[in-house]
Design a protein around this nucleic acid. Structure first.
Lengths: 141, 141
DNA sequence: ATCCTAACTTGGACTTTGTCCAAGTCAACA
DNA sequence: TGTTGACTTGGACAAAGTCCAAGTTAGGAT
């Protein structure tokens, strides 16, 4: 995630301790954290960082295209630091676990012009759903 | 949407005026309403219907598989009465408008076994994003 | 090294969205 | 027409996110 800090500096970001910590938290775990989870982890490193700053910083990272916002369940948004490699998400309906996955082909190609209704379509987000090995009932258990 | 009320009765649903109004609101507009929007429209027909009942009824319709819950933005969940025909969603990044669309092929097929990590994958939800004709900047304006 | 200032951070109030509960009401069967 | 369990209600509460005025500070200028 040093890359990230580097890129941000090049874009004129003022590098505060709060921003550094948020970036480190996101880069340090290959999971998809909510804003509150980022705040909790950030607090461990920088006790007085505020919720407002975490929300604001995450929003900026999303705007800059360095982090992806994913809405898999209609509850808290989650933040995905893997914004530079196209991928989709596989979500466990049991425990909510999320994995990055790489389907083949471009999902955009499956949408014919006649189904675009004049929209300029630029992206396709796919959420695969199912049960992970831990949540699936075992056979002959 | 009489079909819906019919099916619900067959499943032993008690047909109250509140439930009838929620079902009518959902069936009456081919849009994707939030719970609050459903409540507002329901209130026009049945002034004293409560938020709690609207939320509860929507949840039941989802459980019964008669209505789909869609989370396109990490804000309010939206409810899609078109649960009996497979489809995906096209969302305008400008105004949030949502359209049902029908891509060809099965998006599930694009996810190879090696990318399923032991999950039992049962569904794929696709959200296409772009700008609708009203939100797209005009050329030669 | 230090100063300056626009940019950043903070705490808390507030909003939106959703859940839960005890008490009251009513649809549907007998 | 009466009965009863299922349904509805208002309000309190919780979770997630936004906003703001006041205070702090990174980093260029001197």
């Amino acid at each position: 995630m040093n890359d990230l800090l580097e890129r941000l500096r090049e874009r004129g970001w003022r590098l505060t301790s709060q921003r550094r910590v948020v970036a480190e938290v996101l880069g340090g775990e290959h999971v998809h954290l909510t804003a509150e989870e980022v705040h909790t982890r950030a607090t461990a490193r920088l006790p007085e960082i505020s919720r407002a700053t975490v929300y604001h910083t995450l929003g900026e990272l999303v705007t800059l295209g360095e982090v992806l916002e994913v809405a898999t369940d209609g509850r808290a948004r989650r933040y995905d630091p893997n914004a530079h490699r196209a991928h989709q998400h596989l979500v466990c309906s049991g425990c909510g676990a999320i994995r990055d996955v790489h389907p083949h082909g471009d999902p955009l190609a499956a949408l014919p012009d006649a189904e675009r209704f004049g929209f300029t379509v630029t992206a396709a987000e796919v959420t695969y759903r199912g049960l992970c090995p831990d949540c699936r009932p075992r056979q002959g258990g």
